[in-house]
Amino acid sequence: MTRVLAPLILIAVLLAGWEIACRALGVAPYLLPPPSAIGMALAQSWPLLLGSAWATLSTALLALVIASLIACSLALAVSLNGLLEDAVRPIAVTLQVTPLVAIAPLVTIWAGIDHPERAVTGLAAVVAFFPIFSGALSGLKAIDPDLSRLFDLYGATPWQRLTRLRLPSAVPALLEGHKVAAGLAVIGAVVAEFVAGSGGSQGLAWRILEAYNRLQTAKVFAALLTLAVLGVALHATMEYLERKLLNSWRGR
């Protein structure tokens, strides 16, 4: 009980301090709005924020699906062919270390200036790609060497080796990769929205930008808070799914 209570109390104390300090020192609301103002902003614009949260989330999830399909097939192909792995690795690493923001303009051009939502999805997918790819690849290669020897001993065909040893062995790493990728896809979607704009589908980053341009700092905070809640909820969901699936894989 105290473990739940302790962070709640800390948050309450911090919020109270913030509120009192803002009022006592007469801080301008555009500089730092008090928590009460942020609460008001949240109460006023929650339908809009909820819609935006859904826009960001659905973009991130779509990006996750796209990234998963590409990353898993590529990892599978690469794991079956050592030469292909040697060929792909430097390109993959180069792409991975290039900051997302830096490639956003290019992707925006390719997606078409009229379709910023495509660019946002594409950029989020790029970010989500790597954890899935490296998770899948290391999973496909992390085989118990003795189990692999047994497959040799019993004369397993390459197909049996793939379907009955490599793919099931990869499950834990795949789940971990998808969990990390889901979080990154949201970050990717937000960053991409900042850079590419979001056109028809106005995500949370768009709300932040909009409020920032009007110096409605309380609304910026409200959107930020929604984003944080979205991130936490997604992380918790993915963690729950990972645990459930991993337990059924292990039979617990």
Binding site: D144, L147, R149, L150, L165, P168, W249
Partner: peptide, 11 residues
Amino acid sequence: VVFQAATLAPW
């Protein structure tokens, strides 16, 4: 062959 570890497929 029986190895030092049971080497069972966990899944």
